[in-house]
Simulated assay, not measured.
Amino acid sequence: MPYITTTDGTEIYYTDQGTGQPIVLSHGWPLSSDAWQLELKLFADAGYRTIAHDRRGHGRSSKTYTGNDMTTYAKDLSELVEALDLHDVILIGHSTGGGEVVRYAAQFANGRVAKVITAGAVPPLMVKTDANPEGTPIEVFDGIREGVLKDRSQFYQDLAVSFFGFNRDGVDRSQGLIDDFWRQGMLVNLAAAYDCVKAFSETDQAEDLKALDVPIFIAHGDDDQIVPIVAAAEKSITLVKDGTLKVYPGASHGIWGAYQEQLDKDILAFITGEDFEK
């Protein structure tokens, strides 16, 4: 399996498919590059080189005790891009991965990035503060940490229900999606899973968004129960210089079903510069 080793000795697993302009995909918590399996094939079939990595501590990468923070995640991504000598890169990030690609593009890209795409992304700031009253109370994130420590196996199964919106009337429940969420979550070592909660909830990325000098497509479901749109996409679009926001009615945090089908079409249209319905 392909790996790179970062300067601090962490092994980062990645998968690399297709040829052409590179698309690099960054997954959410507590998942892995497996979350992008459909996009890896779809975008490779469309003529792109598609690359997805397992964040440190996640999936098949090193089970790290240290470095589980947004800046180190972005540095790891930078080392992957440089090791593969990628240029004119399209970055795609979901949830925590959205924070990772935004920080990388803002602080570490060195001219290698062409466009950024986020879906259900955590920037600018998830946690509720006096300056961010629309955010989620810290007690919610404390509950996530408690769930991870107490019984992470059951917690991941329970979390998958709201992640994919299966607690909504009229939404067909997919046990397969829940099982796969659980499978990927159980690959995260406990320290990385615990520390990543702080990384995705308390990292203020307003300045990263302001610093972006490339176009960004911000996608978000208006029924996202994990990263509520009001404190995320709706604020992010006001901070970037060249942004496009598309809200997906009824879409959950998890990318699946009709939402996934439309989002993937919109991503390809954004990459090529085509218009799509906003």
Rank of each mutant, 00 (worst) to 15 (best):
G98E: 00
G98S: 02
G99Y: 04
E100N: 10
E100H: 02
V101W: 08
V102H: 08
Y104E: 13
Y104D: 13
Y104T: 13
A105V: 09
A105W: 07
A105C: 11
A109S: 15
A109T: 13
A109D: 15
A109R: 03
A109P: 01
G111H: 04
G111K: 02
R112T: 15
V113E: 10
V116W: 13
V116Y: 12
A119S: 15
A121F: 04
A121P: 05
V122W: 00
P123F: 05
P123H: 06
P123V: 07
P123G: 11
P124D: 03
P124E: 02
L125V: 09
M126V: 12
M126H: 02
M126Q: 09
V127K: 12
K128L: 03
K128T: 02
K128P: 05
T129W: 06
T129Y: 06
T129D: 10
T129E: 09
T129K: 01
A131S: 14
A131F: 06
N132G: 04
N132S: 03
E134K: 14
G135I: 09
G135M: 10
I138E: 14
I138Y: 06
F141W: 14
D142Q: 08
G143V: 06
I144S: 00
R145Q: 15
G147H: 00
L149S: 14
L149D: 12
D151R: 03
Q154K: 15
Q154G: 13
Q154H: 12
Q157Y: 04
S162R: 15
F164I: 11
G165L: 06
G165Y: 04
G165I: 06
F166G: 07
N167P: 10
N167W: 06
N167Q: 09
N167E: 11
G170N: 14
V171Q: 13
V171M: 12
D172N: 03
S174L: 08
Q175S: 08
Q175W: 03
G176Q: 10
I178Y: 02
D179I: 06
D179V: 05
D179R: 05
D179A: 13
F181C: 01
F181A: 01
W182E: 09
W182D: 05
R183W: 04
Q184K: 13
G185D: 10
G185R: 01
M186S: 11
L187S: 12
V188I: 11
V188K: 00
N189Y: 08
N189S: 09
L190W: 01
A191Y: 02
A193M: 01
Y194G: 01
Y194L: 05
C196K: 00
C196T: 15
C196L: 11
C196V: 14
C196M: 12
V197C: 03
V197W: 02
K198N: 14
K198P: 00
F200M: 13
E202Q: 13
T203G: 01
T203F: 05
D204I: 03
Q205I: 01
Q205A: 07
D208F: 03
